[in-house]
Simulated scan of single mutants.
Amino acid sequence: MSLTVKVVQPSGILDSTKANQFEQEISEIIEAGADIVLVDLKDVTFMDSSGLRVLVSAFKTVQAAKSKLAVCSVNHQVRMLFELASVDRFLDIFANREEFSNSLVSSDSSR
């Protein structure tokens, strides 16, 4: 069984001006039937509470669709925001796409 992985890669400042677009993109990916949504934050320079809200909302949307959401390439500011809001407790966070891919390979071989 192969999983459908779709990557969302926002850039710049993830705040209220970009939050709706980001949320829409995730919804479309889920509607298209992705098994896993990977949010690659390597090009995000700053995230505020609006960006965080959308990420948590996306997590709930993905969960409701019986899919998974993972995040990678988180910078220091975003990691601090995740820790303050305790979202690091339920989000799967990877150092980069390679680490994410390796986790898929290892979980696939353990089935």
Results as ranks from 00 to 15, higher is better:
Met1Asn: 02
Met1Lys: 01
Ser2Ile: 00
Ser2Arg: 01
Leu3Ile: 03
Leu3Tyr: 01
Leu3Asp: 02
Thr4Met: 01
Val5Gly: 02
Lys6Phe: 00
Lys6Cys: 10
Lys6Asp: 05
Val7Glu: 08
Val8Lys: 01
Gln9Asp: 04
Gln9Pro: 01
Pro10Ser: 05
Pro10Arg: 02
Ser11Glu: 03
Ser11His: 02
Ser11Gly: 03
Ile13His: 10
Ile13Pro: 00
Leu14Thr: 07
Asp15Cys: 04
Asp15Pro: 06
Ser16His: 14
Ala19Met: 07
Ala19Asp: 02
Asn20His: 04
Phe22Val: 02
Gln24Trp: 02
Glu25Pro: 03
Ser27Arg: 11
Ser27Asp: 15
Glu28Thr: 01
Ile29His: 10
Ile30Arg: 03
Ile30Lys: 04
Glu31Phe: 08
Glu31Arg: 07
Ala32Ser: 12
Ala32Asp: 12
Gly33Thr: 00
Asp35Ala: 08
Asp35Thr: 10
Ile36Glu: 00
Val37Leu: 07
Val37Thr: 06
Leu38Gly: 10
Leu38Arg: 10
Asp40Lys: 06
Asp40Tyr: 05
Asp40Glu: 04
Asp43Ala: 14
Val44Arg: 07
Thr45Ser: 15
Thr45Leu: 13
Thr45Asp: 15
Met47Thr: 08
Met47Pro: 06
Asp48Trp: 04
Asp48Leu: 01
Ser49Trp: 10
Ser49Asp: 13
Ser50His: 06
Ser50Trp: 05
Gly51Phe: 12
Leu52Thr: 08
Arg53Cys: 13
Arg53Ser: 15
Val54Gln: 14
Leu55Met: 12
Ser57Arg: 10
Ala58Trp: 09
Ala58Pro: 09
Phe59Ser: 03
Lys60Asn: 11
Thr61Ser: 15
Thr61His: 13
Thr61Ala: 15
Thr61Trp: 08
Val62Asn: 11
Ala64Val: 07
Ala65Pro: 00
Lys66Ser: 14
Lys68Pro: 05
Leu69Asn: 07
Ala70His: 06
Ala70Cys: 14
Ala70Gln: 09
Ala70Glu: 08
Cys72Glu: 02
Cys72Gly: 09
Val74Arg: 08
Val74Cys: 11
Val74Gln: 08
Asn75Arg: 12
Asn75Met: 13
His76Val: 11
Val78Thr: 15
Val78Leu: 06
Arg79Met: 15
Met80Lys: 13
Met80Thr: 13
Leu81Val: 14
Phe82Pro: 10
Phe82Arg: 11
Leu84Thr: 14
Leu84Ala: 12
Ala85Gln: 06
Val87Asn: 05
Val87Asp: 07
Val87Met: 12
Asp88Gln: 12
Asp88His: 14
Asp88Asn: 15
Leu91Glu: 04
Asp92Ile: 01
Ile93Pro: 06
Phe94Asn: 03
Phe94His: 10
Asn96Cys: 09
Asn96His: 12
Arg97Cys: 10
Glu98Ile: 07
Glu99Asp: 09
Glu99Leu: 06
Ser101Asn: 15
Ser101His: 11
Ser101Met: 11
Asn102Lys: 13
Ser103Ala: 10
Ser103Thr: 10
Val105Met: 04
Val105Gly: 00
Val105Asn: 06
Ser106Asn: 13
Ser109Trp: 01
Ser109Asp: 11
Ser109Phe: 11
Ser110Ile: 07
Ser110Pro: 00
Arg111Lys: 12
Arg111Cys: 05
